[in-house]
């Protein structure tokens, strides 16, 4: 039912594969600071998936809200983790 090759679907395939690769790298990583880098990669890919999903103008605002929120969250985790180690 899915056409295997469609020229309009290539960005969606690229974003999905990048997101899945980033998630697999996060799960099989030991150090926390290396994990946060791939968390940012996953945020970019998920934002692309949101914006490309439905042809509506409000999907752009949903993508903007998710991008700002997730970047703030990842940087807050990184700041707390690094600040707790250096101040001690």
């Amino acid at each position: 039912m899915i056409p295997l090759y469609d020229a309009a679907m290539i960005p969606v395939y690229i974003c999905g594969i990048v997101a899945l690769y980033a998630v697999i790298r996060i799960v099989t990583e030991k150090k926390t600071l290396k994990k946060l880098v791939f968390l940012n990669v996953m945020n970019f890919a998920i934002t692309g998936l949101i914006v490309l999903s439905i042809p509506d103008i409000m999907a752009l605002f949903a993508g903007i809200a998710y991008f700002v929120g997730s970047t703030l969250e990842a940087n807050a985790i990184a700041s707390t983790y690094a600040g707790g180690k250096t101040n001690e």
């Binding site: 945020n43 999903s53 999907a59 605002f61 949903a62």
Partner: peptide, 21 residues
């Protein structure tokens, strides 16, 4: 954060944009 990244595009795909925001 990974789990929320999987859940929010499902909400967008269902059509509830205000809930997703």
């Amino acid at each position: 954060a990974i789990m929320m990244g999987g859940v929010i595009p499902l909400i967008v795909l269902k059509g509830y944009l205000d809930v997703a925001i």
